[in-house]
């Protein structure tokens, strides 16, 4: 039933220029991504380390028979690497035709926002911020960065440099 109701709600949200975002914490920072790209959220399991990979790639885990790479989103966004423990969660996201796990501290909320609430990223932002941050949302006195996931996996340059 929930699904049946969710569908029209989502359609409505889109029709009205509204979108649903899922927000999560990395350290003291709050980020969000479009809920449409999220497949599931699961607890942390130890990953198998991959040789010759950038440090933000924590390795691979078994997701119901598929081999899923885990990206430490904190490290990816230029913060300190996450000390993963049972408290951490993995957000399983669909990026293009690949499925990737994002290691974050905790999932906090589902937000419904209209496009006009999303403010452009200020020019002062760092290169990393420019790569991933698509906009800023101010809500209840908090600042939440909207993240784009297209470039979360390492590209060839980074792979070779590693």
């Amino acid at each position: 039933m929930t699904q049946i109701q969710a569908q029209p709600a989502q359609a409505q949200a889109q029709a009205a220029g509204r979108r649903e975002l899922i927000s999560f914490r990395i350290g003291a920072q709050e980020f969000c991504v479009d809920i449409m790209s999220i497949r599931e959220i699961r607890g942390w399991t130890a990953a198998t380390a991959l040789p010759q990979s950038p440090s933000f790639v924590r390795g691979v885990i078994n997701l119901r028979g598929a081999v899923l790479p885990i990206v430490d989103l904190a490290a990816r966004l230029g913060f300190e690497s996450t000390e993963a423990s049972d408290r951490n969660v993995i957000i399983v996201a669909q990026i293009g035709d690949q499925v990737v796990g994002l290691l974050v501290d905790a999932v906090s909320d589902i937000l419904t926002v209209t496009d006009d609430v999303i403010q452009p990223t200020p020019d002062v932002a760092s290169e990393t911020a420019k790569t991933f941050v698509r906009g800023l949302i101010a809500m209840d006195g908090r600042m939440i960065s909207l993240i784009g996931l297209e470039r979360v996996l390492p590209d060839h340059m980074e792979l070779e440099a590693a």
Partner: peptide, 25 residues
């Protein structure tokens, strides 16, 4: 199991598999 399906080729690694403990090797 393919490593490339969700990631990419890794030098020195031919593919992956899942062992009895459920972990990727």
């Amino acid at each position: 199991k393919s490593l490339e399906a969700n990631y990419r080729q890794v030098p020195g690694v031919a593919a992956a598999t899942i062992l009895g403990d459920g972990r990727v090797a």
